[in-house]
Simulated scan of single mutants.
Amino acid sequence: MYPISTPSHAKLLRPSALPLHDRGGGARTVALVSPALGATTFISGITEFDPGTEIPFHSHNCEESVVLFEGDAVMDIDGREYALQPLDTTFIPANVVHRFRNVSHSKPMKILWTYASPQATRTLRDNGEIRAVALEHGKQ
Rank of each mutant, 00 (worst) to 15 (best):
M1V: 12
M1I: 11
Y2V: 04
Y2W: 09
Y2L: 10
P3R: 01
P3K: 01
I4D: 00
I4V: 14
I4E: 03
T6I: 05
P7C: 00
S8Q: 09
S8M: 08
H9V: 01
K11F: 02
L12M: 12
L13G: 09
L13K: 05
R14V: 12
P15H: 02
S16Y: 06
A17N: 06
P19W: 00
R23N: 13
G25L: 04
A27T: 12
A27M: 13
R28S: 08
R28L: 05
V30G: 00
V30Q: 01
V30L: 03
A31H: 01
V33W: 02
S34W: 05
P35S: 07
P35G: 07
A36Y: 09
A36D: 11
L37I: 07
L37P: 05
G38Q: 07
F42C: 12
F42G: 05
F42A: 11
F42H: 14
S44W: 04
G45A: 03
E48T: 13
E48I: 01
D50P: 01
P51I: 00
G52C: 07
T53H: 04
E54N: 09
E54Q: 13
I55D: 08
P56H: 07
F57N: 12
H58Y: 08
S59V: 02
S59I: 02
C62W: 10
E64G: 07
V66M: 12
L68S: 02
F69Y: 13
E70M: 06
G71I: 04
G71L: 06
G71E: 06
A73K: 04
M75E: 12
M75A: 10
D76S: 12
I77V: 15
D78T: 05
D78R: 14
D78S: 13
G79A: 11
G79M: 08
E81Q: 14
Y82S: 07
A83Q: 15
A83T: 15
A83V: 15
L84P: 03
L84M: 14
Q85E: 15
L87C: 09
T89V: 14
F91V: 10
F91N: 10
I92A: 02
P93K: 11
A94T: 09
N95K: 13
N95F: 15
V97K: 07
V97M: 10
H98A: 06
F100A: 02
R101F: 02
V103I: 15
H105I: 11
H105V: 12
S106Q: 14
S106P: 14
K107D: 11
P108V: 02
P108W: 04
M109W: 05
I111A: 03
W113C: 00
W113N: 01
Y115P: 01
S117F: 03
S117D: 10
P118S: 02
P118W: 00
Q119G: 14
A120H: 03
L124M: 14
D126A: 11
N127K: 10
N127S: 13
N127V: 07
G128N: 09
G128D: 06
G128K: 10
I130Y: 05
R131D: 07
A132D: 14
A132C: 13
V133H: 02
V133M: 04
A134R: 14
A134I: 11
E136M: 15
G138D: 02
Q140W: 08
